[in-house]
Design a protein around this nucleic acid. Sequence first.
RNA 1: GGACGGGUGGGUGAGUGGCUAAAACCAGCAGACUGUAAAUCUGCCGCUCCUUGCGGGCUACGGAGGUUCGAAUCCUCCCCCGUCCA
Length: 318
Amino acid sequence: MSAGEPVQATGSEFGRLIVVLGPTASGKSSLGLSLAQRLGGEILVCDSTQAYRYFDIGTAKVSAPEQRGIPHHLTDLVEPDQVFTAGDYRRQALSSLEDLRRRGKLPVITAGTGLYLRALLDGLAEAPARSEELRERLRETVRDRGAEYLHRILARLDPETAARIAPRDTQKVIRAIEMRILAKQPVAEIHRAGREPLKGYQVTKIGLLPERAPLYARIDARVRSMLAAGWVGEVEKLIAMGIPAGAKPFQFIGYSELREHVLGRMPLEAAVAKIQQATRNFAKRQITWFRRESGVNWLSGLGDDPAIAAEAIALAAH
RNA sequence: GGACGGGUGGGUGAGUGGCUAAAACCAGCAGACUGUAAAUCUGCCGCUCCUUGCGGGCUACGGAGGUUCGAAUCCUCCCCCGUCCA
């Protein structure tokens, strides 16, 4: 058999695909690594923040030595001043998947960004990409006339969608108007036209769901260890590189606070407390999203717990 | 020892006689989510009962009394905390 021959193709037309999902600090990376090592896999990261180059420590990228020789894909895809979206992720992930298939490797997706995972697994509707110019105009309208005014515009353009979006949820209102104008048809219609789910894979989803208290404690501790790993220095370097405060990755949890600290506007301890708090809130939102995810095999513990890892391996090896 | 200022629900903190179970914010819990998603937004949030209603009962604004039809809000005493004067 030649090196390029896909291994999975010999058994069935379906390849295996493992997804490890869960809130931040639940041990996804560690578990994904164990799985990949044991099952001949490679890691596909599904995390909106790790797509950005140079923002490493605070986004919890797995460092080269920690990767233990297992290739990690889908990180460091764009420069800090670029906008990376779910659609971009889907395209890149599809091509990585194809690459692994060709090389006969088991894809192990470690997912913290629910929307991106869904974009990959369930697909995205055939919707127009964002238009920065249009968005700028809409944002201006909000500044001048208020969020409710923009929502009323959407109600006129697309009542069905307006009814599903809260008047003050400006971000979603803008996206809906953008779609409606660019595609010249209502959002619901675009959605009804369907999305294209990922085909050709037998997916095993493993969800990590630790108890709230230990998770929160773990989050607090991890922020401390990121700091100990030189997070502040990394932020100083990013500022020195000239990356503007408005760049998207500077809005990620921790980077905005640490930037303030480095600029002398916030004591370190205050920044730490804010980061820990924001991360706990974020974990809560991730859990809410993932609970809706279908077909998840839930494990109630942390991914680096050997007992949990053993359960996961049993599931993945099925 | 004296003079002021202050003690409010898990936290911060509004509220100076009824419209107050008590603003607002935070935390917490629950939820939504199809191209910014580590984003954005929504609901609940003293206890309790039921025929789940702009419903009933109970408890609550440091403590104990009092005034009043009615008090977190006024009076008295006490206990704490802060600042200042001695």
